[in-house]
Write a protein that binds this DNA or RNA. Sequence first.
DNA 1: CCAGCCCTTTGACCCAGGTCATGGCCCGCA
DNA 2: TGCGGGCCATGACCTGGGTCAAAGGGCTGG
Lengths: 226, 226
Amino acid sequence: MTPSPQVQEILAQSPLFRDLGGPELEALAAVATLRPLRKGEVLFLEGDPAHTLFIVAEGLIKVYKMDPQGRRQMVLHLDGPHQAVAAVAIFLEKPRYPASAEALEDSLLLALPSGDFHRLLETHPALARALIRFLARRQRQLVHLLDRLVFHEVSARLAEYLLGRLETEGQGFRLPTNPELAALLGTVPEAVSRKLGELFRQGLIRLANRRVWIDDPAALRALAEA
Amino acid sequence: MTPSPQVQEILAQSPLFRDLGGPELEALAAVATLRPLRKGEVLFLEGDPAHTLFIVAEGLIKVYKMDPQGRRQMVLHLDGPHQAVAAVAIFLEKPRYPASAEALEDSLLLALPSGDFHRLLETHPALARALIRFLARRQRQLVHLLDRLVFHEVSARLAEYLLGRLETEGQGFRLPTNPELAALLGTVPEAVSRKLGELFRQGLIRLANRRVWIDDPAALRALAEA
DNA sequence: CCAGCCCTTTGACCCAGGTCATGGCCCGCA
DNA sequence: TGCGGGCCATGACCTGGGTCAAAGGGCTGG
């Protein structure tokens, strides 16, 4: 965590606000507040009234639904630097967060009062356009997630996850804990453990500590599609 | 299907466009085309390039994902009169429909070229605002669907469905076919048949033809939460 | 008015994966 | 240095619900 980040700088790097002019950014920066969050801290809970939009400056935020008994959770998306969190909630008639959010790492967020954001939206078509694009992209991603959950089994979802990490980070990336991974895949830690073991036994991947090397991407791809 | 519906009239009734001024509506109406669709006809398929936004004038449109083998399908939402279809797709970088759509009844749609829509958006904040609200609401609904699918079993989803119909239509509403209902609930026709049978045997509902009377809404509610 | 097609119901079967319990390990903290 | 809590792996078990097959039933279009 860097000592004193430039609020305007953060705003200017976010896809949502990057098209705004200098004066607008300054005005926004004036009403924004910084919100540090320690690993594991909760940002908001499903059902909380939503007055605030967040921009991630540093760290990683997990947005998730919790099951009724409060034991399992299902991750909807992870948001890193420059990403907006809770952009949806503040536009509902009764603004309440439809999911919960917590920090996966020590993080720093920019909090923007929803009133100010709404006001800015009125007068800045570029902001509206960026927001619309953002919402459309996120919705596409949610539909994809739904598709995977309904039509594909755990091993296929795991395979897709591994290939995704491989693509963005290359060989040897570090896995999250099994409970975290299970929440990402919509299953339970035991299942993750077993499926990883299978992949290893079949020679598709190698594991050391929590690092992964993928030996047979083609086979993994086939698994992911199945 | 009424003989010759007023295009402007249809636009003016849609939540998306109702806040536009007369001249804008007229301009939009000039570029809109009417698209009749017979029951069962496909409007677009997942993956098709998306140049067009639709507004339902009459009828009912089903938007759904198909499973890889093309046997089961999962309904994402149903859209009746005044609703927009495919509002998301045209805002993606590579505009392709993320799901398929077909008519559940004989329908009439208004087709708006996405270019015109984009242009209108630039200059009309009210339209942007309405669209943002629309996208936010739909996203909330998708998250709810996902939650139900991941955390609740078929009988709970069926119970919720029945209560929803009861609320909006009262006793004695008509069920869709089992395959349709299965697609709505994310399961297979056989499971729907069995679960309906169970509810009947437990005395929670009565069935005649395909009409439903709900005798014990409280018990059904309990089931839905479980 | 008939033939065919799809829907419905039901039974038998099966399997992915969720649950529970055990034992070992690692790591942070006192 | 010892303790405790969470993580990990694995086995045993169980069940929701998906698959397949068979036997009516009813709507529809020719």
